[in-house]
């Protein structure tokens, strides 16, 4: 029996999505084969992108070794975002922690102005995550969309409870939307179907939730792998959106990441590496050394 290299080909592809505007625009997705299967037929026109995370309020509870790289800038989101770009981030992910109704409960207007300042100050596209409170985000994100009109931010999370108002604002002001569902491929498809009735699917990025290593990471891994399978192998249009893996907080809140610097960086790096191998198109990281390590390890010679 002779060996023949089992090269595969695929019938579907992931939609190519552009984030940012003008010289800042970055493309993600577009691949017509599974992640890192460079030996198969098809192409991967855009490599996965590495984002670093910024908060609009000073973080509490962060381990000292993940605060260290940002210690001079944590009180100023603009400087913090610029620092991320210096560290090699291809995108900045701004988290509107200030708007959390259980916390500072900042007004939509306040938050939107802060976003605009950051968006104007950095040379890379901006991802904006609201607090995750569906009612508050339904007020905050449309305000952000209007204030940053035309900048093509990646805005979310749009949930099944609030996607209509967020999608409408994103549509009017030219932004891209993060559709988020909790670790379930059917819920993901359902939300994408509802969204696509009024919103162009080529402006949607999916967030199936990213769990940290040891805390359910395998669920996120397998949901992402299956999403790519149904999209790329079986041409299911409702799973052909690129994936964002928003994993930093889930890794750094663990006691293992808080135990030592090296273990923390490895916790985040291994989670990121796993989800990239599963097919994530954007990873949101916190420690700049994680970014360097994971990028280096997955470099294609």
């Amino acid at each position: 029996m002779d060996y023949k290299a089992p090269v595969e080909s695929y019938s579907g592809s992931v939609r190519e999505v552009t984030i940012g505007q003008g010289s800042k625009a970055v493309k993600i997705g577009g691949e017509s084969k599974l992640a890192y299967n460079f030996f198969d037929e098809g192409s991967i026109p855009n490599p996965p992108r590495f984002a670093l995370e910024v908060r609009d309020t000073e973080p509490d509870n962060w381990a000292p070794w993940v605060l260290e790289p940002y210690k001079d800038v944590v009180s100023d989101p603009v400087k913090w975002a610029q620092k991320c770009v210096e560290y090699g981030a291809e995108m900045v992910c701004l988290r509107l922690a200030s708007t959390d109704p259980v916390g500072k409960d900042a007004s939509p207007k306040e938050a939107a102005e802060a976003v605009k300042k950051v968006a104007d100050a950095v040379s890379v596209p901006l991802i904006v995550y609201g607090s995750g409170d569906d009612k508050k985000d339904a007020e905050v994100l449309p305000e952000v969309a209007a204030t940053c009109s035309g900048q093509n931010l990646l805005l979310g999370p749009a949930l099944k409870e609030n996607y209509e108002v967020i999608a409408k604002a994103a549509q009017e002001h030219g932004h891209t939307v993060i559709a988020q569902t909790p670790l379930d491929i059917n819920l993901m498809k359902e939300l994408n179907i509802k969204l696509s009735k009024t919103f162009p699917p080529e402006r949607v990025v999916i967030d199936p939730l990213s769990s940290g290593l040891g805390y359910g990471m395998e669920y996120s891994f397998t949901i992402m792998e299956r999403t790519k399978h149904t999209g790329v192998m079986f041409k299911d249009a409702m799973t052909q959106m690129p994936i964002i893996a928003d994993l930093a907080e889930e890794c750094w809140k663990t006691k293992e990441a808080k135990a030592s610097k090296e273990q923390g960086i490895l916790w985040e790096s291994m989670t990121a590496l796993s989800l990239l191998l599963a097919g994530a198109n954007i990873v949101v990281l916190r420690h700049p050394e994680t970014l360097g390590l994971v990028r280096e390890i997955l470099k294609q010679e």
């Binding site: 290593l213 040891g214 395998e218 490895l266 291994m270 796993s274």
Partner: peptide, 9 residues
């Protein structure tokens, strides 16, 4: 972390 990853996968 390596053994935790193995457990997960």
């Amino acid at each position: 972390p390596l053994l935790t990853l193995r457990l997960n996968i």
